[in-house]
Design a binder for these strands. Structure first.
Lengths: 205, 205
DNA sequence: TTCTTCATGTAATTAGTTACATGATTGA
DNA sequence: TCAATCATGTAACTAATTACATGAAGAA
């Protein structure tokens, strides 16, 4: 019986195409990179490879450490074929979930201070991502990055994440300035018309 | 018995704070704005308001059109209180799901043409968002936007989405140039070192 | 009149998460 | 030798999605 492969299945398959891994190693690798644009719970990463094995896309071999077992997964030729097909059909665009922005959107139900606290949290979040990002880039510059043969693809993805995180940081800083100029009763705030006018004046792409 | 309210519950509550709506109107309003940063299936928007009613945060009244009924929901004072509490605690940062970027990340399993097709799809996606965005801004400039009293908050959110969509568009264009310079065998591609060096040279935030 | 789209939901299914469990290893 | 953390999973639950169903209104 053939089970449908999800995007997550293909993500795991893609990791296995680089290298054989244990489930645990998969979780570590995920949190390093994929996690930023395909976030999944660890438990999922223990389940998915099993599904790949039942479909003949990967093989599992068991190692023993003391009285515990661990499972190493390896991609099969069939797995590589499936992966190539998957890459060939363009994927879905980005889907964003941003609770903090929701609170900004409904900001008039709280105080100006609440609104500023949300914007400060956004700035912190972006700063932390960017800090990690820069540290990883430094590793690569020093030649200490893992899988140096994959640096080109890694950099392509890093380029996106960098400008995405910059967008969050810049927005948080700018929005903070805007909101600081607002009165305490934010329902009386002047809209930032210069922004709206600039946007409206753009050429349609 | 008290049911836990999800972020989606609060999003609906926020919409009800603006105005009473039928479920159907909620779905339309969602797809206009919230959908971009809190995407949910329509069916959810028929369920959630019922939950709010059981918690005393909204009231429902039934209208009849022909032989069909429709339900109008209205926020209660208790609902407004809950909403104010929710806005006051800073929300979660952005979570991104970006399948297309996953395919770029695993691009070496396909052809250079596959990679370029993915980048072209990303460019199209961003162009379409930005086009709609600009058209909405023009409505506001003409004074034709809905809920003009909410223009300030709307603009704050639009500022984020605009730079986020710009980030996607700029990345897609830049990445396309990079990949076009690559050989057909993309495993032999030169990494974009200038980007990596620039990133590594940044000050830590 | 018939077809399509708008309008209003319900039911079944599932992908994913949270919580739990337990052995191995390390360091204080 | 005890506690904390690393390593490896399983089980229960649920938020959300997909698929289905049906009436109203307007167009052709």
């Amino acid at each position: 019986m053939t089970v449908a492969l999800t995007t997550t299945s293909h993500a795991i398959l893609g990791l296995l195409a680089i290298h054989p891994w244990t489930s645990y190693e998969l979780t570590k690798q995920m949190s390093r990179s994929l996690h930023h644009f395909w976030p999944r719970a660890e438990s999922k990463l223990y389940e998915e490879p099993k599904k790949l094995v039942t479909q003949g896309l990967a093989t599992a071999s068991t190692r023993t450490v003391g009285r515990r077992t661990s499972t190493v997964y390896e991609i099969t030729p069939a797995g590589r074929a499936v992966l190539a097909e998957w890459v060939a059909v363009p994927g879905a665009g980005p889907a964003l979930e941003f609770e903090l922005l929701l609170k900004v959107f409904f900001g008039e139900n709280g105080s100006k201070a609440d609104l500023l606290a949300n914007l400060a949290a956004a700035a912190d979040w972006a700063a932390e991502r960017q800090r990690q990002n820069i540290e990883v880039a430094r590793e690569y510059v020093e030649g200490a990055g893992p899988f140096p043969e994959r640096t080109a693809q890694d950099a392509l993805v890093a380029a996106f994440l960098t400008s995405y995180w910059d967008a969050v940081a810049d927005w948080a800083a700018q929005a903070r300035k805007t909101v600081e100029s607002w009165p305490d009763d934010i329902t009386k705030a002047d809209p930032p018309w210069h922004f709206i006018h600039e946007l409206a004046a753009r050429d349609l792409p």
